[in-house]
Design a protein around this nucleic acid. Structure first.
Length: 447
DNA sequence: TTTTGAGTTGTTCGA
DNA sequence: GTCGAACAACTCAAA
């Protein structure tokens, strides 16, 4: 029996894993995760802790067999393949610009040793590059894409294969980095791994799916699925979610499928236009300001706008932010502080446990008005009215901004209207929203 | 080739 | 308080 290698990346699970299933059918399997020095040190501790915990969970699920190595993947994968005499390396196909470039480098290194790379599937229900217009091009608009995507359909999930795992001695440097990452886990970080993902998903189906359409926008209630961190590392695949949704009667099903469609759409856009990760899809000939003190205030959650600060503090604390608040904070950076969106997108990616290049950066482009949709230039979020509308009790603000915890109800969104609003050191607004909104509109209109 | 209908998530102002 | 209009013009995708 020949040995094969499965190199895990954004697919940290055992069930519903086409590459692992294919590898297991050929003989003994060595499971490998590579701690890439180009990626690992980036960003905040929540992000790294989540990755470390997700890798650790996969290792536990494999009975301790998963091998973790530190180093350049092109070197490490080829070396490990040689060490076990593997003729094939099975992977889930990667679709991001860095992933594609890295995989091309690894393929060259493998080919030099006569090893064949075997990709199977992607982290998406429909592989990016599949859904095309009648003219054969990539969709640029969400709604027609989502129609075609639903029409195309997707495969059913696969069961977990029986795997005859191979083992290798641990790599001390990789182990040290994993442990360091785990030690940094923020308080209240959810349980990582495939089993935890399925458990959380089951709870969402039972309790929050029915009213999802109504409740998903309330940051205080937090009745979203929280699947994004699991999807990011591939602890669960959208195939599983879509299969489970297919036979549910709940009202929220359509909306949830649409949210998954957004993830697939943005992955498709990124696949078709890799440069769109960090460049305007539709550049606006307007000026941007250099990030200064106000930018630091935004990062640290002390802009003086309660909803913005609550969101930015939640991001730093738990590596996650409610979607509604992501839009408000992004709007504040781009429209109130006039900072170019990639600067904010990079900060988000550094800290989010679910930081997905396509969804994150294209979401930022949507807010900034440079993205795929026909962006009305006047789309400027008002952080106060958004707060009153989606956090009417002020509970979300009080949870994350202790300086405002003494303010009752919606008054937490307007400390300037309360006699004791600044009694506990909450900062004054760094800018005047009404004024900066006009500045932004003028810049857009002047183009 | 030309035409046509449509395009995630907002805010403000005035009636 | 509520409601509709205005805030521009453009690109996309299919007919």
């Amino acid at each position: 029996m020949t040995s094969t290698l499965v190199w895990f990346r954004r697919d940290l699970r055992l069930a519903d894993h086409p590459a692992l299933t294919a590898a297991a059918a050929t003989g003994p399997v060595l499971g490998l995760f590579v701690v890439d020095p180009g990626l690992w040190p980036r960003g905040g501790r929540a992000r790294r802790a989540w990755l470390a915990a997700s890798v650790a969970a996969l290792r536990e699920a494999s009975g301790g067999a998963l091998v973790v190595r530190y180093g350049d993947p092109a070197t490490v994968v080829a070396e490990v393949a040689a060490a076990i005499g593997a003729g094939e390396v099975h992977v889930t196909g990667e679709t991001t610009p860095y992933g594609r470039e890295r995989d091309a480098r690894v393929a060259v290194a493998l080919a030099e040793r006569g090893v064949v790379g075997r990709p199977a599937g992607t982290p998406y229900a429909v592989d990016p590059g599949t859904i095309r217009t009648q003219q054969g091009g990539a969709y640029q608009v969400f709604t027609p894409f989502s129609r075609a995507w639903r029409e195309h359909g997707w495969d059913a999930p696969l069961p977990a294969p029986d795997v005859d795992w191979l083992r290798l001695d641990p790599d001390p440097e990789a182990e040290r980095l994993l442990e360091e990452g785990l030690a940094d886990a923020p308080e209240g970080m959810p349980a990582a791994g495939e089993a935890a993902a399925l458990e959380r998903w089951g709870r969402f189906l039972d309790t929050d799916l029915e009213d999802y359409d109504d409740t998903r926008d309330a940051p205080a209630a937090d009745q979203t699925s929280r699947m994004s961190p699991y999807l990011k590392v591939g602890a669960i695949h959208p195939r599983r979610l879509l299969a489970d949704l297919a036979d549910r009667p709940d009202e929220g099903v359509g909306r949830f499928v649409t949210e998954l469609a957004w993830r697939e759409f943005y992955a498709d856009v990124l696949w078709s236009q890799p440069e769109s990760a960090w460049r305007d899809l539709r550049p606006l000939p307007i000026g941007y300001d250099d990030p200064g003190d106000a930018f630091a205030a935004w990062q640290e959650g002390r802009t003086g706008y309660p909803l913005v600060d609550a969101g930015m503090r939640q991001l730093l604390h738990e590596g996650w932010m409610h979607n509604r608040v992501r839009m408000v904070t992004a709007s504040f950076l781009t429209k109130d502080l006039h900072v170019w969106w990639p600067i904010g997108a990079a900060h988000f990616l550094d800290h989010l446990v679910d930081g997905d290049l396509a969804s994150n950066n294209h979401g930022w482009q949507w807010v900034a008005g440079t993205g795929t949709d026909a962006a009305p230039y006047f789309r400027v979020f008002n952080p106060v009215s958004q707060g009153r509308k989606f956090d009417p009790d002020g509970a979300y603000v009080r949870r994350w901004v202790p300086e405002l915890a003494h303010l009752p109800g919606a008054s937490a969104h307007e400390p300037w209207k309360h006699p004791d609003g600044y009694a506990h050191g909450y900062p004054q607004p760094v800018v005047d929203h009404a004024l900066e909104r006009k500045v932004a509109l003028d810049r857009y209109a002047a183009r």
